[in-house]
Design a protein around this nucleic acid. Structure first.
Lengths: 233, 233
DNA sequence: CGGGCCAAGTGGTCTGATAAATATGCGGTC
DNA sequence: GACCGCATATTTATCAGACCACTTGGCCCG
């Protein structure tokens, strides 16, 4: 008898696991093109509908990428691809969990900034400064937010750990920050934010990891404390 | 004109965003039951197939839960639900990215252990000790691994940040650790692991955060260094 | 009053057809 | 010979309808 039918869970779920396993075992390489939906469905002995659901699931997880008219491909499986879903967590979290997320961000961001202080190159530093000045040259919250994100993104990248940078990206996703900052910035936090950014920048220029860690922790901690107070009230 | 057709992306993608938005705006509460697939498809003006793909996507993301014969429900949207997909990252990462993941784990785990040292209760400490002794009472790698996971899980929980605990869970998912430890334990690392666990436990008993941080960092760092050497070779 | 049976409701799966986007190969033109 | 344009094949995206499997709640019978 054929042992390929353990009959656990739905057929779609099994298909997801099978494809994940194929990638895990190296039978499917990053960037490689998969057989067509129809062929895959036949191979796994399921209908095309179920196969499409499995593909859709792996697509939102950042494992596969479907190109209309072309085919289905394995992504590069880089940190950014797989951690894109992290933004969903930030977007759907509320109340106390927002504080927890900021706590995680504070821990990672402070360490990332410390690492960046030690490793950052002149080119990367110039890029950081570009966003810093752009942020100070305007009063448009949208533009500020955008450069703020890029500012921290560049620092995280300079830390040399792409995975950490991708996680921090998720923890700072646009909708997440916009939601928190709407109220935070109303309390005249612009000036303080600029001072904190300047402190982080000074530490980076001085290549002083401990100062960078402290400045980054304080920066995130400020928002964290404000949010904690908001929840409590 | 009808503004309900922005025509960006696939209809399934739009359906995913719509449902996510409904939850984000609070129109769908955690635990609440959704309309049937058929009704939802009609509401959004798409076919049932496309709606099913959207539901499947949100299901694997831990946002929705489909119960055969009963209906579709919003999950509790707790950290554990939404971060379950984090395990996929650990399972599909290889080479240098495994080191990066362990680096992230070292940072979070050391902080979590430090927090736990300050906050852990007697009951939680007893639970930790249970897994510690169980781990030392056997030579079966499977059982050891299982209690090792529970040991660290308990500590992360004691730190009081469920989100962090859930992330660490993903970073220590069964297949991930099994993959790394297969080779690690072959080098007679059992004894060292036991010493390190004992050191962590002592720090917890003494409620000494700094000692706990150092012990946890060293513990994860050991594996990290070993893996780094493996990659390089 | 309690237990088991039954039917309606609902998610799970399959099949087949059509539309839309892409890739391919051929022929022609310059 | 090279390049462009177009018809054609391939492939994903979407739709429609049917049937199966499981859950639930009420009804009937003992």
């Amino acid at each position: 008898m054929d042992e390929t039918a353990p009959q656990k869970g739905t057929v779609t779920q099994r298909a997801i696991e099978r494809i994940k396993a194929m990638i895990g075992e190296g039978r499917l390489e990053p960037g490689q093109r998969l057989p067509t939906e129809r062929d895959l469905a036949v191979q796994l002995g399921i209908s095309r509908s179920s196969m499409r659901e499995a593909i859709r699931a792996l697509t939102v997880l950042g494992v596969l990428e479907a190109r209309h008219g072309s085919g289905i491909y394995v992504t590069q499986l880089e940190a950014g691809d797989l951690l894109e879903t992290f933004g969903v967590v930030a977007d759907l979290s509320r109340g106390p969990r927002l504080v927890e997320l900021l706590e995680v961000r504070r821990i990672l961001e402070s360490t990332a900034t410390a690492l960046a202080a030690a490793r950052i190159t002149e080119d990367q530093l110039a890029e950081v400064e570009k966003h810093l000045t752009a942020m100070n040259d305007t009063d448009d919250p949208e533009i500020i937010l955008s450069h703020d994100l890029a500012f921290h993104r560049e620092i995280a990248t300079a830390a040399g750990n792409e995975t950490m940078a991708a996680i921090l990206d998720g923890l700072s996703s646009r909708t997440f920050r916009a939601r928190v900052w709407r109220g935070y910035q109303e309390e005249g936090a612009f000036a303080r934010t600029r001072r904190e950014h300047a402190a982080i920048h000074r530490a980076l220029v001085a290549h002083d990891p401990e100062a960078a860690r402290a400045a980054a922790a304080a920066h995130v901690g400020e928002v964290e404390e404000w949010l904690r107070a908001q929840i409590g009230s």
